[in-house]
Design a protein around this nucleic acid. Structure first.
Lengths: 255, 255
DNA sequence: ATAGGCTAGTTGTATAGACAAGTAGGGGTG
DNA sequence: CACCCCTACTTGTCTATACAACTAGCCTAT
């Protein structure tokens, strides 16, 4: 473990500097799977921080899934590859960029209309209220991947229709123009077959397998801000997910 | 907020008692969405614990997704319904019980065989190594839901074939007999069409939409212990998932 | 040889206090 | 009325310390 990694003048918290430093060692291979991470005491002594600060750094590493702690034994590097990217909400643009593909969209509809019952229920508004509806074909490297249809309560972004270029990133516009930061997305995925119109737009035979997604996105307080229904080609899309089996459910406090 | 909720003699940690108490208030409706949870100071003063202990209780609430904190403002009850059940690894038996259905299985194969390349790679063993293979039809209330095919390195459970009743819960047997506690599952889901044999076993027309799952499960240290390929009827199964958009990725330490 | 105890090292829980940084509201000044 | 400052309250970070609970290894006594 290299010393002198800390900048005590920085606005970056100490525990976070330590976490990033350890993360770098894991990524570079200096710390390999199964090996012990420096103990709380060791970090505390060598970097001149309190044990609680060292502890916070290790805990944040564990929350990333990079390490795991065992009482009485120590903290060890987890053997599992991916650190994150799971369960991260990513916009279509972000997801494609991460995979190295060139994202593009063809706009099918961009309009204000009244909410259907399904949309109103998900967004917790009245069916009389109006929403902005944006229907797009999503493409990666000019190949059609899916069809997405977003709905946003019009009250949240009154001038979106005038000022937003629907071929660009909706999430980015919501964040920068209206301060709407999406925190959580609930998603339901189903499997189905492409209908005639969908097949034509996606350039696949009718009856080809597809994913059907129904997503609702919330800001931090839990207020719903976006409802999306989409269809994706099954031959070009898969769902990757990580599930954890939590230990402490409702039993006693034993680890 | 009710006082005297703490048992200082108990083995249950104080912060956990406080967390459970607040969780109860949220569930009972005494604390509603958007309302502020008692502040760290308030808990500290009223229950006679230190601020750090109160803080730990609130933080654990936030990790459950039940609440969220805003610096300078307070901690508030999140408006989102489900607290957990997302991203929890559940065995088939557990999942069916939770939904109130009666789980049953029909065993198609239960044998020791050598690992295929795909299986060996996922379990990080040699293709020469032997694995236990268990192929079952999964049923809920006597209706076929899917076909699952599990593979477990034989070294982990040498006498499984002799001592395990393959109609019961595999996870339970692994935990109780061999101390194998699954901590993480990585899952890939694809959409496809039922082939002839699959359609016959699931009693659906050939070409019906299905989910294809590929799951690898790991124990705490990251060692893979189970590899499963399965097929589920799309008309009786959907994937529910919650994604979060993390704020602190690699930027500075600002919240 | 085995059982038991002792010790050093680890994480888990808890306390008390300090300062920083952000929010909200009141009150005074212009 | 509008603006600014000040204050009170909140969460975020950090320190220093203490004891409990658990692990692993060593050593001793049986």
């Amino acid at each position: 473990m290299i010393l002198e990694a800390l900048d005590r003048q920085s606005v970056v918290p100490l525990y976070y500097q330590i976490q990033q430093h350890l993360l770098g060692q894991v990524r570079s291979g200096a710390l390999k799977s199964g090996q012990p991470v420096p103990s709380e005491q060791a970090i505390s002594a060598r970097l001149g921080v309190s044990r609680m600060t060292a502890r916070q750094a290790l805990k944040s590493l564990c929350e990333l899934g990079v390490a795991y702690s065992q009482r009485g034994k120590g903290t060890f590097v987890s053997a599992i590859k991916l650190e994150k990217d799971f369960r991260q909400v990513l916009s279509f643009s972000e997801e494609m960029q991460k995979r190295g593909a060139r994202p593009r969209s063809r706009v099918l509809a961009f309009e204000a209309c009244s909410a259907s019952v399904e949309v109103a229920e998900a967004l917790r508004i009245s069916p009389a209220d109006r929403v902005i509806r944006l229907r797009r074909i999503r493409m990666a490297n000019s190949l059609p991947l899916g069809i997405e249809c977003s709905h946003i309560p019009i009250g949240l972004c009154l001038d979106l229709i005038e000022n937003f270029d629907p071929r660009t990133s909706l999430y980015r516009a919501l964040a920068s123009r209206y301060g709407i930061e999406i925190a959580i997305t609930d998603e339901v995925a189903e499997a189905g077959l492409a209908k005639t119109e969908e097949a034509r737009l996606l350039r696949i035979p009718k009856g080809s397998p597809i994913f059907l997604f129904t997503r609702t996105s919330y800001i931090h307080s839990g207020k719903p801000v976006e409802f999306v229904k989409s269809i994706y080609r099954a031959d070009r899309y898969k769902i990757v997910n990580r599930l954890t089996r939590s230990r402490k459910i409702a039993s006693e406090g034993r680890n």
